[in-house]
Computed example of a mutant assay.
Amino acid sequence: MIRARWDQKIYPPVKIARVADALAAEGVPLSDALQGTQLTEQQLRSPNVLVSVNQVIVSYRNAMRLTRNPDFAFRTGLKSHVAAYGMYGFAILSSTDFRETMKFVVKYHHLATPVVRLRFEEAQTHGVWVIDPLPHPAIDRSLYRFIVEMQFATHIALHRDIMGSAFAPSELQMTFCGHESNAPFEQTLGCPCRRRQPENRLMFDAAWLNAEPRCGNEIAYASVIGLCDELEEELAQQVGVAEQVRQTLLASIGRRTDFSEIARQLGVPARTLRRKLKEQETSFGELIGELKSHLAIKYLRDTQMTVEDIAGALGFSDAANFRQSFRRWTKTTPQDFRRMIVS
């Protein structure tokens, strides 16, 4: 998965527009829905405007604050359609094999303004989507739930677009506890929703994967895959050398790694690498901090590791230095963050 900085504007504003339209249906002015996103109504509808993950997160927070519907995320996700995703969506529609479709969705998910990581598994009787919100520092417990519910509903809506309106999951599993509005949530889907599970999982009968796609077209699919590869290459170029540095740092996280060593591993003179990072408006220090903050959030959210163990895993000399850095990244302490994010 190509990883951009949270503030890097490389995605179409589809998800922000969907949220803004859903709020407008409740009578919320567009200016309120877009507050803090730095977008105007004209920009929201422009095919030439690109947005960042940060802007998507701001729009989701606006929705949580402005909506009167406790099931807003789920109801909004159900209004999703494959056609809104451009070439990525057209490839999904034109695939001639649903198992290949699932692989395509995972491989090219970064073309769809990702706020989650996706994994697809097939057991003997079930297809399973595993959904994991990105470790963005602004994703607290409430926003985590909002994102998961919207992603569940989006997946259901897209499955119905390609598999037919009768598609329904057999079970949903959520890491968080439920709330009163989950009663209609379950009634709408007609399947059990299990809380406090190890992962967020959308399960469906694997027999759906054996059906023949209604809109499958081998020639169209091959052509669109080529276009998606071009889009992926363009995206990788926009993310650029910073992503190569991230991947190299990730392989050595927890060990002291200096800039010259990273440059040597990438086969680039240190001066050239520093210049290229500056052109991308970032630096070696910023990338290290970003990577460590991502991993710290994930460890705190998804494991039972102690603060001391996390500090050691991330290469800090002691827990006090880690706590100081974590407060700089998130404006809170590791302990308070864990209490906030865990139900």
Rank of each mutant, 00 (worst) to 15 (best):
V53I: 15
W208I: 05
T257S: 06
G312V: 02
N48T: 11
R141C: 10
T332W: 08
T101N: 07
D32Q: 14
T37H: 07
S94N: 03
V115Y: 14
S223L: 15
Y88L: 14
S181Q: 14
D161F: 04
T101L: 14
R145N: 11
R65C: 05
F146K: 05
D71Y: 10
K276G: 01
E234S: 07
A157L: 08
C215D: 10
F204L: 00
V342N: 12
D309I: 11
S142E: 15
W329R: 00
R339S: 12
P70Y: 13
T330M: 11
N48G: 13
T101A: 12
A84Y: 08
G267R: 02
A22T: 07
Y144S: 03
G190H: 07
Q280H: 04
Q43K: 09
F98M: 03
W329Y: 05
R274W: 09
A166N: 01
E171M: 10
G190D: 08
I16K: 01
A319V: 07
V307C: 05
D32Y: 11
S260R: 15
D97Y: 10
A123V: 01
P47W: 02
H110M: 08
M340S: 15
I57M: 13
F74L: 08
A296P: 07
A270M: 04
T272G: 00
P47S: 09
I156G: 06
I341E: 05
G267H: 04
K107N: 00
N210K: 02
Q304A: 11
N54I: 01
Q124D: 08
D140F: 12
R5L: 14
S52Q: 10
G267C: 00
C228A: 07
R256M: 03
L202Y: 04
T333S: 15
S59V: 11
L143H: 00
K103W: 02
E281F: 04
D318V: 00
P169A: 04
I297Y: 13
V116D: 02
M102D: 05
A311R: 05
P114A: 06
S260N: 13
Q324A: 15
A263I: 04
W208E: 07
I225G: 01
D71P: 03
V268P: 01
S260L: 06
N200R: 00
V51M: 00
F90A: 15
S170Y: 02
G127K: 01
L93Y: 03
G312K: 08
G178E: 12
E199Q: 13
V19F: 09
G315A: 10
S31D: 14
R271A: 09
K292N: 05
R117M: 08
V342F: 06
T175S: 13
F104A: 01
T101C: 00
V53D: 01
M87T: 09
T113D: 07
R201V: 00
I225T: 07
Y144W: 13
A183D: 10
F98D: 00
G86D: 01
Q304N: 12
V115D: 13
A319Y: 06
V82D: 10
V116T: 15
R255W: 04
T330S: 14
V307R: 15
E121H: 03
F72V: 02
D140N: 14
L23W: 05
V82G: 01
Y221H: 11
